Amino acid sequence: MRLWLRETAGPALALFASTGTLLCCALPALLITLGAGAVMAGLAANVPGLIWLTAHKGQLFAVSGLLLALAAFMKWRARNAPCPIDPAQARACMRMRRAGTVILAIAVVTYLTGGFFAFLAADLLL
């Protein structure tokens, strides 16, 4: 349990936070682009947190960016941490390191996608 917590907790938390950036900005833009404005109106009416996220997108991106930076720093700092000597535990340790790296990369892509739709898409595409 402690190995999972050390290797993937930070990236998983950053992924969770960066998913909020997709919900606030990329999802509405995608639905409107696809001509599903009625679906977007239904979501806005039934999911009040969606409107709150959109209204506070600056703070959302700041917190998500901070969590991403913290997770990346934790991964960088633990890059040379020793794995256990036991071969099975060493394989599990390396698997957790790769999983944490993949999760962190997905979180960064998610954050950048949400940032594009939140701050750049309207200026570039309209």
Rank of each mutant, 00 (worst) to 15 (best):
A62H: 03
L30R: 08
G20M: 02
G37P: 04
M74H: 13
L3A: 15
A92H: 12
R91D: 14
R91E: 14
G35I: 03
G35Q: 05
G35K: 08
L67M: 13
R6D: 10
C25M: 00
D123Y: 08
A62M: 14
L112N: 00
M94C: 08
V108S: 07
G37R: 10
G37Q: 15
A36R: 15
A44F: 04
L34F: 11
G115I: 05
I32A: 12
V39M: 07
V109F: 07
L124D: 06
G10K: 12
T8Y: 10
R2N: 09
S18Y: 00
Y111D: 02
I51D: 02
M40R: 11
I32L: 13
T21L: 02
D123C: 04
F73N: 05
V39E: 03
I32E: 15
L30D: 05
G100Y: 04
R95T: 15
A121K: 04
A12L: 15
G42I: 07
G49V: 09
P87A: 13
N46K: 14
I51N: 03
A55Q: 15
L70P: 13
G114H: 00
M1D: 11
P82L: 13
A88P: 00
W52S: 11
G10I: 09
R77Q: 14
L31Q: 15
R98N: 13
